[in-house]
Nucleic acid binder design. Structure first.
Length: 325
DNA sequence: TCTTGGTCTATAT
DNA sequence: TAGACCAAGA
């Protein structure tokens, strides 16, 4: 899901670049989108248990594309769901099962195109499939071409952020605006294989994001710290915490300008009384912050799990239970 | 003016 | 599925 409206709000610092501009660099790749798009090409085969490797071809085509331009890809896969998000997994599973059953019913009637529609909906890139994906084909293909890869203990986002922060890679290729919240410096969106371009957003440009009259989606980030930027995105609603109803990106931005800190903003909304602050919202907010800052990731150098950023003295077991053990 | 929820569309065969 | 885009309502 990412942060709704964040990319349009950062329009003024988006730069379309030819990927050859990253020649000589190492780029971390979020495998999720490639997997998702790849399975479209063979949804029927996958759902009915046929063996296929078309989705590997799809991803490897992109890997080779990067290599062709002398870019070293570092492929990152999702691991298990973060404890913070567990709730949504089971109802997704039941929806998948439902679509699988409907697809099979259509197929029994010979209605292949309608069956395919259902199969597309039931295909999800589950950790099992990602695992199968690596093991069956992609793994060998990457190994054969000495392409580094890593499976995140939890979310790929945090792992991607760690790889950049720790100096393993120079940039991150993804479709998820959350990477900016995780503190990444150079994030590349909208990889276009035909034009061989990406849309780059650099953190160093945040300071020049100013609300201009011509841009209805604009926000101003002049003089903002990472703490404030992160607070704005969490307040506007993120994967870990829905927003207080009625608070979007703009309102969060304006309130933070006025009150400086998230604590003060949440207090002010409560005192004003026009919007109802859910019980425990401040606490949930703090936990969401922890997920963005200290989620568990794998360090390829130390070969063990580490925190995305080191935790402070206020850390406790409850936080650990939230960001992964 | 901003949020929210709806619809549309690309994905690739 | 998820982002882009649009219209309605607060």
């Amino acid at each position: 899901m990412g942060i709704s409206g964040l990319l349009p709000a950062l329009k003024s610092i988006q730069v379309t670049r030819h990927i050859s501009e990253y020649s000589g660099k190492t780029v971390a790749v979020d495998a999720y989108v490639w997997l998702h798009r790849g399975v479209y090409s063979c949804a029927t085969e996958l759902a009915t248990g046929k063996i296929t490797n078309k989705y590997v071809d799809y991803a490897m085509h992109r890997v080779r594309m990067l290599q062709h331009h002398k870019i070293t890809p570092y492929v990152v896969f999702d691991g298990g769901p973060l404890p913070a998000k567990k709730g949504t997994e089971s109802d997704r599973k039941s929806k998948r099962d439902e679509n699988l059953a409907r697809g099979n019913a259509f197929m029994a009637q010979g209605k292949m195109s309608q069956a395919r529609e259902c199969f597309i909906k039931c295909i999800d890139v589950s950790p099992e499939m990602a695992y199968q994906f690596i093991k069956a084909r992609f793994f060998h293909a990457l190994r054969a071409e000495s392409v580094p890869y890593v499976v995140a203990p939890y979310e790929a986002d945090a792992q991607l952020a760690y790889l950049e922060q720790a100096g393993f890679v120079d940039a991150i290729l993804t479709e998820d605006s959350d990477l900016l919240v995780f503190g990444c410096q150079t994030v590349l969106f909208k990889f276009d294989v035909v034009a061989a371009t990406v849309v780059s957003i650099s953190r160093k440009d945040f300071g020049s994001v100013a609300a201009s009259s011509g841009d209805a989606n604009g926000i101003s980030l002049i003089g903002w710290s990472d703490v404030q930027f992160r607070a704005m995105t969490i307040l506007s609603g993120c994967d870990y915490l829905p927003s207080i109803p009625g608070i979007g990106l703009k309102t969060a931005c304006n309130l933070l300008k006025k009150w400086r800190t998230a604590d003060a903003v949440i207090r002010a909304i409560g005192i004003e009384g026009k919007k109802s602050v859910p019980v425990g919202y401040l606490k949930q907010f703090k936990l969401a912050e922890k997920c963005f800052l200290h989620q568990r990731v794998y360090c390829p150098r130390q070969e063990k799990l580490v925190y995305l950023s080191e935790v402070g003295s206020d850390w406790n077991n409850e936080f650990d239970a939230y960001v992964g053990g």
